[in-house]
Design a protein around this nucleic acid. Structure first.
Lengths: 348, 348
DNA sequence: TATTAGCACTCAAATCTTACGAGTGCTAAC
DNA sequence: GTTAGCACTCGTAAGATTTGAGTGCTAATA
């Protein structure tokens, strides 16, 4: 069943009004809009239709209407025109972009600051290859492995050793490690490669084991889907999300990166074009305690084709226009940084 | 005015009961304790005295009594005997202690897990000296400085450069940097030292500036009072702390490391013996929104005399016994790690 | 003199009552 | 197709009533 123009207009007005006030919207409120020139009775008839079609609902008999998930969905897909907002955040984002970790943290922060919602940012899912390895002797019992992953993701690993090593030995190890591992990704580092390296290392194969363990740990850590969040406490600002128990459970969930990554990964599968906006409203998130929340995400893209996600979590009653335009702007900026700027992902 | 034995017993029973139930404690409840053998009327008289002395108070005329800050204080100082609890957490803590940062994070986590309160851990205030510096060339435009601070606190700094450097140059820089900076603390790195180094570096004094900037930034960062927190959302579990607004403000405050450090630094000044427990009850924390909270901290000590703090933040009505014993146990473990174990703070 | 039984009193919390009003659906007239 | 009018619904807010836990005081008791 298609909605005629008038129904669309009325639905749009209802949702827009509800987004602003948070109160159920009555027929008289809508009839007061000048450009409509309809009495409240007419609006009531239309509203009854819209309710029957499942776009709006009455919290109780003698109340105005509020949007259903379906109503929100229709609004987001068909009725909402995006705000073309001034891109104010530009200047705040541009510092210190030389390390991906710091950059993404900053993105999460900026987003939280601009929207007042809880935000999350996933690192791009690119094939994380080793750019550079440096093994150093910190003291007699301790080695330090520094591993720089493509994108300037830096991992440090302390490696305790039993055997005495002189600087000469460490230098040899460095050459060995870099020869084999530079450009390799986690999947490349298999038993075969390890054995080949051990063979070349001669007497030191025992210590090489220790070193490997450390390095694999570090690379593995880097390879996990990393998520950065910010503004989690913003969740508490929206009482509509539920009572304190539910809110607090949601908050805990939000701080559990493990769980969050499931939530996001699943969604990210849908579309891969940079700038694409995905909106998940209420029950569309099949997660407990999230019936009154919406998640809005945007995909950003790196030149190699890897994609990542930035997104916000807020109440269903949220300023979708603003959120979408903010996300779009940020995505554009991110694309810009990744594609034009030097540093973050230098193919050096 | 001194409290006689019976008043002490009654006060202790009142507070213990209130800690358990959370309800105001009436005279009849107390009179039911077998070993007391007093009627409720007698208890009422005693209670009236205790109220006059300021140890307990009635929330309203027809209610039982609850402890005042003064009452809690007396309880903590004089009435509470500590639980000698089995030290269950021992085994969980012992992994990966080779980097101070990871260790302290883990301490915060274990503490939160064991107490169900929000926890915070400050790094020891020892003089952070440079143990080791490694400058590496990651690619043509990028240097990476790795700085290991005493205690295996590791900082990475990406340094973009304009000038071409070959490996020979980098090696020279490394020798120069380590010669001057090893063992130096932040305060030692002054203009004089920098100038001396520049003089020795010959042609490269421009690039040295860039390197210095990076290193100073990293050392500076390491030198800040670092605070690790965990279990912040536990604050939401205690409705007595206030309505949702106050709780959320408190939560935000708790996540602001800056503010937290003030809170803790000020307290830490009091005592310096390892294992010392400090308790701050309600208004004793002159901080907004914390009137219904208590903070319990313990001081741990490193062999060189540096001290740090571990502590919890919870509602005034908390299980002080358990918290104190948990903190004591953890402090003992930390002391143990710092003093006997190798790695975390090796004077090598 | 310390303790206790008894009793009137207080007051928060729970329950019920009432009034209000925003908003609806329906019908009949335009 | 639109609208005016009206009876109806039901959540909310403001009182009124009840209940019960707990007190303070007084007079009797050991």
């Amino acid at each position: 069943m298609e909605l005629d123009e008038r129904k669309k207009t009325i639905l749009k007005l209802i949702i827009a009004t509800y987004l602003e006030t948070g109160e159920p919207v009555g027929s008289r409120t809508i009839s007061k809009f000048n450009d409509l020139n309809l009495s409240s009775a007419t609006i009531r008839n239309e509203m009854a239709d819209l309710e029957e079609l499942g776009y709006i609902v009455q919290p109780h008999t003698s109340a105005g209407r509020i949007p259903t998930d379906k109503g929100y969905r229709f609004y987001v897909d068909n009725l909402m025109e995006e705000k073309e907002e001034a891109q104010i955040e530009k200047s705040t984002l541009l510092e210190r972009v030389d390390r991906m970790e710091l950059l993404l943290k900053q993105v999460a922060k900026v987003l939280a600051y601009n929207t007042n919602y809880a935000t999350l940012v996933t690192a791009p899912n690119y094939r994380k290859t080793v750019k550079f390895i440096q093994l150093s002797k910190v003291d007699e019992q301790t080695l330090l492995a520094v591993i720089v992953i493509e994108g300037n993701l830096i991992k440090n690993q302390i490696i305790p050793i039993d055997t005495m090593l002189d600087n000469e030995d460490v230098l040899k190890f460095n050459i060995l490690l870099n020869t084999f591992l530079q450009g390799a990704s986690l999947e490349d580092i298999n038993l075969e490669m390890i054995n080949a390296m051990k063979k070349q290392s001669g007497d030191y194969s025992v210590i090489l084991d220790q070193i490997f363990q450390g390095i694999i740990e570090a690379v593995h850590e880097a390879n996990e889907l990393e998520i950065y969040t910010s503004g989690a406490t913003n969740i508490l600002k929206y009482p509509e999300i539920g009572d304190i128990r539910r809110t607090s459970e949601l908050l805990e969930k939000f701080e559990d990166k493990e769980e969050l990554s499931h939530l996001i990964e699943e969604k990210a599968g849908n579309k891969d074009e940079s700038g694409d906006i995905q909106v998940y409203i209420g029950e569309e998130n099949a997660v407990q305690n999230m019936e009154d929340c919406s998640i809005v995400t945007a995909t950003y893209k790196m030149p190699e084709g890897a994609t990542g996600t930035i997104g916000i979590l807020g109440p269903k009653r949220m300023d979708y226009k603003k959120v979408v335009s903010t996300l779009k702007n940020l995505t554009i900026e991110l694309d810009d940084i990744f594609n034009k700027r030097k540093g973050v992902n230098d193919d050096g």
